[in-house]
Design a binder for these strands. Structure first.
Lengths: 193, 193
DNA sequence: AGAATTATACTAAACAGTTAGTCTAAATTT
DNA sequence: AAATTTAGACTAACTGTTTAGTATAATTCT
């Protein structure tokens, strides 16, 4: 991939994340990326296609960080996946912003994305395995608990600015560490007998 | 409030929720509301001010639905507040959409809104009371559990389209009912000894 | 090897449609 | 009488997109 194209994609990601699809300006993206506006249309045939490319890029990266838990019990594996999820959201702040905006606006692309249920399927599968092995408690609606767990993790990042202040002045790394500990506790209390 | 103004506010709310601030069009809002475009500028001096009015309206409504729990125990009150939160989000789908978009875009207005921490403060206060009365278990970071609970509730609504399919073909009312039951269980397991 | 051609990356400037916002004059409602 | 609403033309600025052309290095032809 050419240097210009890469710069455009990176800059566009930030722009779309901060301003949303409609708020982002091709002019601004070009200027910020330090390239001519026409170069964007040399590489991508429209704003919509640029957005699609940005999203695909993002989800590709998300999927490439594979999660093949290495633990010896369902409990360990579930915790690994959850911590991985937290690390991913922590390391990709733009991901959450673009997700929230695009989901709220019901953008086309998201109907085609199969990676979307990535974490959900992973967690759900492990839980069901846990029920079979007797490690996890059997409940009427397992999807309820999976959604709740994912939501609990996701919410901190999606509403970070509003929430962060309740944690005081400690470093972000420390908050992440605390979040992981809490989520381990929550998983233990909700899913395991 | 005049009939036209009210119609404009309602239509603008839907437009901003669906399309976002930048995606919403004044012309379309006027047409949909069935009023002349000039009337919008008669009541509001700019698009930005219309948006502000819409947000204030929304939060006023949110705050007006007061939550003064009537239960006899912290447990009952906490459940009441949580169910009220679920009902509110269920009954105000635009609220979530506007929240997600505006939070992601870090819009000015949200820095001035004090209602924002409404539910957080309410839940946090009850939890602390519960710790004092011995009803709730004492944890190192109570804010962690409050954030997790709110996130678990909020997530279902904010990512409704993506999540809903995991629940099959049952009615939305039924899902809400199931969600409430699950959240009661989660609260019991997380906060109460 | 040197000339001709191609491919890729890129730019400057303009085009064409859109959009927030304005103006004026009249009509209707309260 | 005052507040509200309509009608619709109008504009200034903006914004996505196109066009036509440049630079350069690699490839192919002679």
């Amino acid at each position: 991939m050419s240097q210009g194209k890469e710069k455009i994609l990176q800059t566009a990601l930030e722009a779309f994340a901060e301003k949303g699809y409609d708020g982002a300006r091709i002019d601004t993206i070009a200027k910020t990326a330090g390239v001519n506006k026409a170069l964007i249309y040399y590489h991508f045939k429209s704003k919509e296609e640029l957005f699609t490319a940005v999203i695909n890029d993002l989800f590709e990266k998300a999927a490439s960080v594979s999660i093949e838990p290495t633990g010896t019990s369902v409990r360990d594996n579930l915790i690994q996946v959850m911590e991985h999820f937290i690390d991913f959201l922590h390391g990709n702040p733009y991901f959450v912003k673009i997700m929230d905006q695009s989901v709220a606006q019901d953008r086309d692309i998201f109907h085609q994305l199969h990676h979307q249920n990535f974490f959900f399927e992973a967690v759900m599968g492990m839980y069901q395995l846990g029920v079979r092995t007797g490690e996890c408690r059997k409940v009427d609606h397992p999807e309820e608990y999976v959604v709740s767990l994912l939501g609990a993790v996701y919410f901190y990042f999606s509403h970070h600015r509003a929430i962060r202040k309740f944690y005081g002045t400690i470093s972000e790394e420390e908050v992440i560490s605390i979040r992981k500990r809490t989520m381990r506790d929550i998983i233990a209390r909700l899913i395991f007998v």
